[in-house]
């Protein structure tokens, strides 16, 4: 399903949570909405899920208003809450029938989806006894149960342990080819795995909208990253004296050497090291910043 967000603004009493935000998500695209706490991610997601009204602007799904498309949307709130007296199975049965799926179909689908989210043993347990992570899994199950064509998830994996996170990410990868996915997160590693496009939001405004490659490429540095054996660290002092080396600095467990022309100078540096009988454990040309660094440079005020 194609999702269009047109110039959406939402003001609360003292704060503008979302400020003239627009974007278009094409069919079967996966978009990660990232931003620091309080940036307006959840507000925007609630507006898309039709829980909040936008003060201005509109949300359009395949050219239609969202209220006509509700059975095609899977929504996972940040803190999914269910009736504590219902069992996991009954909860899915309840949510499923509300979406207009027949009982017979549900009795077939529910055990499958419970297995997929890792709750098959808890099918007959009361939701009231569930931990936060188990509720999150149940939340994901209910969002996927009716096979929606648009899935909106608010922090889908933040509350999960590494096993649960892996299971959910695999689940999302599985349905990705035929589903439009919008998920918000502040854990970039997760979004990086399934989404190919990122939208960065800060103070309610869109400050970046790019594919993963674009983001990473933009911040590639002309530097050489190397890790040396301890005995050879003295060599770096000589390196710093070399005419083509601009700067040597500590970086992670090794050093970053800024040079004038990476390709040519890397070869010269390597030759120099061989002459001096220096052993590297790692030699990398062109230091890539991680997505996390990119994110930090985007959102942190200098």
């Amino acid at each position: 399903m194609r999702l269009e967000i047109n110039n959406v603004t939402k003001k609360f009493k003292h704060k503008t949570a979302v400020n003239h935000f627009s974007m278009v998500i094409e069919e079967n695209e996966c978009v990660g909405l990232i931003g620091p706490n309080g940036a307006g991610k959840s507000t925007l997601i609630q507006i898309i899920a039709d829980i909040l009204y936008a003060d201005e602007g509109s949300i359009v799904l395949d050219g239609q208003n969202i209220s006509k498309k509700k059975n095609q949307i899977g929504y996972l709130p940040q803190y999914p809450n269910f009736y504590s007296w219902m069992t996991a199975y009954d909860t899915l049965l309840f949510m499923g029938t509300l979406s207009g799926i027949s009982k017979n179909q549900l009795h077939k689908d529910i055990p499958l989806i419970l297995t997929k989210v890792g709750l098959s043993k808890e099918a007959q347990s009361k939701v009231g006894a569930f931990s936060g992570g188990m509720k999150q899994r149940l939340g994901i199950a209910q969002a996927l149960l009716h096979k929606p064509t648009l899935i909106i998830m608010d922090e889908p994996v933040s509350a999960l342990d590494p096993i649960g996170r892996r299971e959910v990410l695999n689940l999302l990868k599985e349905i990705k080819s035929e589903t439009t996915i919008l998920l918000s997160t502040h854990i970039l590693g997760d979004a990086e795995e399934i989404c190919e496009r990122f939208v960065v939001i800060k103070d309610g405004q869109k400050i970046e909208d790019a594919t993963k490659e674009q983001l990473l490429h933009r911040n590639q540095e002309s530097a050489i990253y190397l890790v040396l054996q301890k005995d050879d660290v003295d060599w770096l002092e000589k390196v710093a004296q070399l005419p083509y080396v601009k700067k040597v600095e500590n970086y992670e467990e090794g050093f970053k050497i800024h040079v004038e022309q990476v390709q040519v100078d890397a070869y010269r540096l390597l030759q120099n090291a061989i002459d001096q009988k220096i052993a590297f454990t790692k030699f990398e040309i062109g230091v890539k910043e991680s997505l996390e660094d990119t994110f930090l440079t985007l959102v942190v005020d200098v």
């Binding site: 829980i51 059975n71 929504y75 809450n81 509300l98 979406s99």
Partner: peptide, 13 residues
Amino acid sequence: ANGMLAFILTRPV
């Protein structure tokens, strides 16, 4: 209070 109302209304109800 527990968000079920908003949650239920995200369904075609």
